[in-house]
Design a protein around this nucleic acid. Structure first.
Lengths: 169, 169
DNA sequence: ACCTCATCCTTGAAACTTCAACAAACACGG
DNA sequence: CCGTGTTTGTTGAAGTTTCAAGGATGAGGT
């Protein structure tokens, strides 16, 4: 905030360097997400998040996954996924199928058409990512970036699996 | 994408560590943006981006800024800003005013009410950011994060200022 | 003055996301 | 088997963002 002056707060404001870092983070993430969204909207006719869903499906056994699991891995809500898959279905890139073992469940499935689209646009997408990030960083920085992002992500997970050990109350 | 097999492509796919780094980046940024959006939606009744706009205005002379300049600093499109300010106006957090020197221009202005809201929610917001990032990183990592994000942002800017020197054609 | 092109900002529609509410199916103790 | 609470996935409405288009003013040359 910086400008928030004269308050007997015990709030630990960000110091100058922290502010600059935070601002850089905001700018970089916003610019990159924008960049990739446009790149993929142009080349694959879909937003980055949707593309990510197709990628996940392509890596799953039989190119299919339970909705909840897909949502969990993609870090989005089930609701959002529901809408997203509906849209992907309209475009013919994915379809749904009832889960045999659980009558509540649905499997999201990558269609051949979806896979083909992925193949076509993957090189361009990778190039964009590489150009924006990896081509610009030293291997030290790449390593550091990985560590940092894992730490941040870890801290925000609603306790990813097996963390139910020291469970008070 | 890793699963993309057998292609005589000259595409430089991401290696294993690069993939893990990229995935961590996606997860961290997505989780954090979600986290802050919820935190601010709860405490300040507005999404993170809108909050950022008010912050920028609060730091500007006379708490006002030309629309285009605000959009530029916030890294969003003018269209998006136009809608956003309209909404902020509805809530009484901002207002518009014609620019005296340029009849096309508009100034976005932070209202007292907007400033008050900012003051109320700033401590919680800073705490959230600190808890998600700075409290978890060593000072080495903080420094590194800043450098890295500046590099990435810089590479994605449509050539921020003064880059109009070697202008071919 | 005029023409032309650039810049400023807005608009409406379509696309996407969030939120709360919901129905259906499961799980499990009684 | 019956309740009770949980999990799964969807839905509709409201909010947000994108995209293409457009009206108005400014800037610079002729």
């Amino acid at each position: 905030m910086g400008v928030m002056t004269t308050q007997n707060e015990d709030t630990r404001w960000l110091n100058d360097e922290e502010q600059r870092t935070w601002l850089a983070y905001l700018h970089a993430t916003m610019l990159l997400e924008d960049h990739l969204d446009r790149q993929l909207q142009r080349d694959a006719k879909m937003p980055h998040v949707y593309y990510g869903l197709l990628v996940q499906l392509s890596q799953a056994p039989h190119r299919r996954m339970r909705m909840t699991e897909l949502a969990r891995q993609a870090k989005i809500t089930r609701s959002r996924l529901s809408h997203a898959v509906a849209r992907l279905e309209q475009h013919g890139w994915a379809r749904r199928e009832d889960c045999p073992s659980d009558k509540r469940g649905q499997n999201a499935i990558l269609t051949d058409e979806g896979y083909a689209t992925l193949q076509q646009s993957a090189p361009g997408h990778v190039a964009a990512v590489r150009q924006a990030i990896f081509d610009r960083l030293t291997s030290e920085q790449q390593k550091s970036l990985g560590e940092i992002m894992r730490i941040i992500a870890e801290g925000l997970q609603p306790n990813e699996a097996g963390a139910d050990l020291p469970w008070l109350r």
